[in-house]
Amino acid sequence: MVLVELATGTIVADPDEVATVLEPTADEAALHDAAGGNAGPIAIAFPSFTDGRGFSLARLLRERHGFKGEIRAVGHLIPDHGQFLLRSGFDTAEITDPEAVQVWKLRSSASATIISRPCAIPCRCAGMRPPRPRLRSTRCLARPTTS
């Protein structure tokens, strides 16, 4: 089991310990509690790779609950999730096969335009800058770069 940083497709050497694990059924109160105080990483569980509830939960944590810490995807994930995870607010994904990191990296970089398409602000995933702001509804929800 290794932790991939979605924006770079690299392995996180020393992962922080998860503060809260959210199941896909988490309600508003659970999101509120998890986000409170920005305590530490929140893990969102994906019981199946086709179950997309976690994408909504991450977005709600970012947009409605102001969570600024690490959001981690755990469970049945495939590299093709990478760009969706990144753009809905996840930072990292826990994967079982360390060999697959290269594919995750490839899928992230191959999606440079996709990812930068909606970005209005420089953010961690920025590969290319968009030619101009596009449909902002699909903008990247990854955290702004701090540097």
């Binding site: 997309g52 969706f84 809905s88 449909l135 699909t138 990247c140």
Partner: peptide, 16 residues
Amino acid sequence: EILRQWSTLHPEFSWL
């Protein structure tokens, strides 16, 4: 067309 661009690879709604 607006909906097409918005919904294409939508980060939140691609695994409904």
